[in-house]
């Protein structure tokens, strides 16, 4: 279970703003294993977006290595990168970024099109994925006829279309209300538990981040802290207090009635 999907080695990124050099990332080392659900937190300007762009092959580091599924993507030319993006990474955006003139199914089919998946197969898989995110029967609806939460579900289905090694979610709940926020995080968590999907999520929201398995704190371009999230507990489906069986969506242990929370400094609230 320690198969590395993503490995960062001494990753640095420097931007040149006028005459000033801005160190966005410095010497980041990180390994994300298959089936992990990682949340990256940090204040504005901490380098979250830069890190995510590099992970998504959308930007190149100044120094260091990015090994994605064993491939060093930093050495690949731009025209190879779009293939990597299409086949190995699924993106979930804060603003959903669905194509407004395509219906839900067609939006989910898009990534498969670039991999030349046959039309019937695309249609079948898109239907399956939409059912998986709870949108069966809404396949023909265009984005403007879907709620924000539903749009993000379509976006998640789209991210899963090509069976990527990694899902990169950039503030996936940033534009959602409390109820939908919970629904989307639950969806991601269930995908992680049931399908074993590897997820890296960037978020401001500590409540959202706490649902992940590993929490990484990014500050001034460095990973300053790491702690376990509640998700790990749920993943084992065992209460950390009494050892009793729990369900993934439970917020309190059905046996000992204790509130389920993540381990770390906020322990004992």
């Amino acid at each position: 279970m320690n198969e590395a999907v993503l490995k960062l080695e001494n990753l640095s990124k420097t931007y040149t703003l006028g005459k000033r050099n801005v160190q966005a990332l410095s010497n980041v080392n990180l390994q994300v294993n298959k089936g992990e659900f990682v949340a990256i937190m940090g204040p504005s300007g901490s380098g979250k977006t830069t890190l995510l762009n590099i992970l998504g092959c959308l930007d190149k580091p100044t120094a260091g290595l990015v090994l994605l599924d064993g491939v060093d993507v930093t050495s690949l030319p731009e025209k190879e990168l779009y293939k990597i993006r299409g086949s190995k990474i699924g993106f979930v955006f804060q603003t959903f970024n669905l194509l407004p003139y395509l219906n839900a199914r067609e939006n989910v089919e898009l990534p498969m099109e670039s991999l030349k998946v046959p039309k019937d197969e695309r249609k079948r898989r898109a239907g399956e994925l939409l059912a998986m995110v709870g949108l069966s029967g809404r396949e023909e609806h265009r984005p403007q006829r879907l709620s924000a939460g539903e749009q993000q579900r379509v976006a998640i289905a789209r991210a899963l279309a090509n069976n990527p090694a990694l899902i990169l979610a950039d503030e996936p709940t940033g534009n959602l209300d409390a109820k939908n926020k919970y629904e989307i995080v639950k969806l991601l968590a269930n995908l992680n538990i049931n399908q074993g999907t590897t997820i890296i999520m960037v978020t401001h929201d500590s409540n959202v981040a706490s649902q992940a398995e590993r929490l990484l704190f990014l500050n001034d371009g460095k990973i300053t802290r790491e702690k376990q999230g509640l998700h790990l507990v749920k993943k084992k489906l065992m209460c950390p207090y009494c050892g009793g069986k729990i369900q993934a969506e439970d917020t309190m242990c059905p046996s000992c009635r204790k509130k389920l929370k993540y381990q770390g400094e906020e322990d004992g609230d």
């Binding site: 731009e78 293939k83 993106f91 898009l110």
Partner: peptide
């Protein structure tokens, strides 16, 4: 722009 970026992020080539 966002649509173009999205297409490129989900694996569309420059040519497409």
């Amino acid at each position: 722009t966002r649509e173009i970026g999205t297409l490129k992020a989900i694996g569309f080539s420059d040519w497409t």
